[in-house]
Simulated scan of single mutants.
Amino acid sequence: MRAPMSARMNERTGLAEDRTNLAEDRTVLAHERSFAGWLRTGMASVGIALGFNALFRAVEPQWVSKLIATAFLGVAAFIFLSAERRACTIMDRLETHKVAALKPVRMRLLAWTLTGATAALAAVIWILLEP
């Protein structure tokens, strides 16, 4: 004997909700990976700045290599802050169901810490690394 029509509809609705919830969880995790990818890109820009400043320290005038290194540090700061803004905006709209997501406040803390460290590095390049 077949189950009543309403029972089958409830089962289908429940399965559809489960699929939707799992898809939203996957989306949350994908955005966390994207955030991490942007942070890696920002850190690569910091590395380029340090390498450029170290390799071209002998360039005269010296402010040219410092300016180019600072430009890469500015790009890194922009990447950190825009990644944070985008990730937090998206995470505020999504709801997790079965996964533990990174909280937006932690994303903000990480992005602002990296931005502050990048600004400090720029200051070190200009102030402390005099010939």
Rank of each mutant, 00 (worst) to 15 (best):
M1P: 05
R2H: 14
A7Y: 09
R8G: 05
R8D: 13
M9S: 10
N10K: 11
R12G: 06
D18E: 15
R19Q: 10
T20R: 15
A23S: 14
E24Q: 14
D25R: 00
D25T: 03
H31S: 01
S34Q: 09
W38V: 06
V46E: 05
G47P: 00
I48P: 00
L50K: 05
L50W: 05
F56H: 10
R57T: 12
Q62D: 13
Q62P: 04
W63E: 12
S65W: 01
K66N: 04
K66H: 07
K66I: 04
K66R: 13
L67Q: 07
A69P: 02
L73E: 05
L73C: 03
L73T: 04
L73R: 01
V75D: 03
V75R: 01
A77Q: 04
A77I: 02
A77T: 05
F78D: 09
A83Q: 00
R86V: 04
A87R: 00
C88A: 09
I90T: 08
I90G: 01
D92N: 15
D92P: 01
R93E: 14
H97K: 12
K98F: 13
A100E: 09
A101F: 08
A101V: 03
K103N: 13
P104C: 06
V105P: 01
R106S: 14
M107W: 03
L109E: 15
A111C: 04
T113R: 14
T115W: 02
A117I: 08
A117G: 09
T118M: 05
V124F: 13
I127N: 04
L129K: 12
P131K: 11
